[in-house]
Design a protein around this nucleic acid. Structure first.
Lengths: 193, 193
DNA sequence: TTCGTCATGTAATGGGTTACATGATTAC
DNA sequence: GTAATCATGTAACCCATTACATGACGAA
């Protein structure tokens, strides 16, 4: 219910807050480094989002000071520090476990992956497989389209065909990439490390 | 001036209309087939867009009947048929020639490519090179990020690293794809055919 | 003292979607 | 006659961005 699909954003915020309490400004920096250029959120969307989350009881800002000591930037600047609540943690778990109806263009998967370490291994495999299924569907559509073109039953532009060819290769590569990740995951170890 | 970045949409509409007069409903079908799943526009955005274009004098709807004869679906259904104006053609030429500040995530390039046959060969090369430059920048950023990680100066998630690795490969492949297209274009012939 | 950056927010705008409303025509 | 699809539109909403407004603090 009420799953307003800014959920990737919400997921990222809650996940970062689950590690440690943060204030808005810091949160944005961390989002930028964690998500890379996957997605950049402006303050104009971040602060209203924090409001929403607090109203929903998923985070709260009552405790004002984040780290009393051991802080090099010990400043008394006005900050609003948020921490995740019990409800928020539940919501986070839901979001993390949800593969969603996400189409292959959604950055939902990428954001998910950025917080994969927060997820139980079985769930990880489920999510990876979901992504693979969607990519396989796309791959089939592209193959079908290219095949129709080859049979001259369809008239698409030569440039569009090149684009589809590139898309097909990329999709195929990502499917194989996912299969490697799934295999590694089933082997019970995260990639690398 | 006033380049409200729904220009990819505008470009597609004007380009299709430059081929032949169309009405809104048909336009949407054609957009869907021409652009594939690149981008799908709903009527809720298409009809207002047609209004805007007409107000701007880029298209006009005075001539109501598109094809008096030679029409299998000869129906008297109420239609508003639009044709491109002289101003509209000018605008289209501008849009087609513009590579824009488009970031690598923009679908502007893909839409452009879908109408590449409308563009003069030299301009095509310019656009392809622009895209290549942006991709090369992205490639360098990804390489730098991965290198930092390798030197342990940066701590990014293992999954994120995998994602960056995939992104790097995809970017690299697209650069090479572009180089082939550019070479073919310099050879003065469109790909395939 | 002035500039950068920390820090929080609001208002206006952009660019789109879904759902709704309406009705004619065609195929079964 | 009834369902699909052709055809045009509007209203409500969603999600996010840019630009603006404000102000404190630290460093040059």
């Amino acid at each position: 219910m009420s799953s307003t699909r800014s959920s990737a954003f919400e997921l990222a915020v809650l996940a970062l807050m689950a590690d440690a309490p943060v204030h808005g400004y810091e949160l944005r920096q961390r989002l930028a480094t964690t998500l890379g250029s996957l997605r950049v959120f402006s303050y104009g969307s971040l602060y209203p989002m924090l409001r929403r989350l607090e109203t929903a009881g998923l985070i709260d800002s009552t405790g004002e000071l984040p780290d009393p000591d051991a802080l090099p930037l010990s400043s008394k600047r006005s900050r609003v520090v948020y921490r995740i609540t019990a409800d928020g943690k539940e919501r986070l778990a839901d979001l993390l476990g949800d593969t969603g109806p996400a189409s292959w263009t959604d950055d939902g998967f990428e954001v998910h992956l950025a917080f994969f370490s927060h997820i139980r291994p079985e769930t990880r495999v489920r999510i990876l497989e979901g992504r693979r299924r969607r990519l396989e569907e796309r791959r089939e559509k592209l193959r079908a389209s290219l095949a129709r073109r080859a049979e001259r039953r369809d008239r698409i532009d030569a440039y569009t065909e090149q684009l589809q060819q590139l898309g097909l290769e990329a999709t195929d590569r990502e499917v194989r990439w996912l299969e490697e990740l799934i295999a590694t995951e089933r082997n019970n170890s995260p990639p690398d490390d």
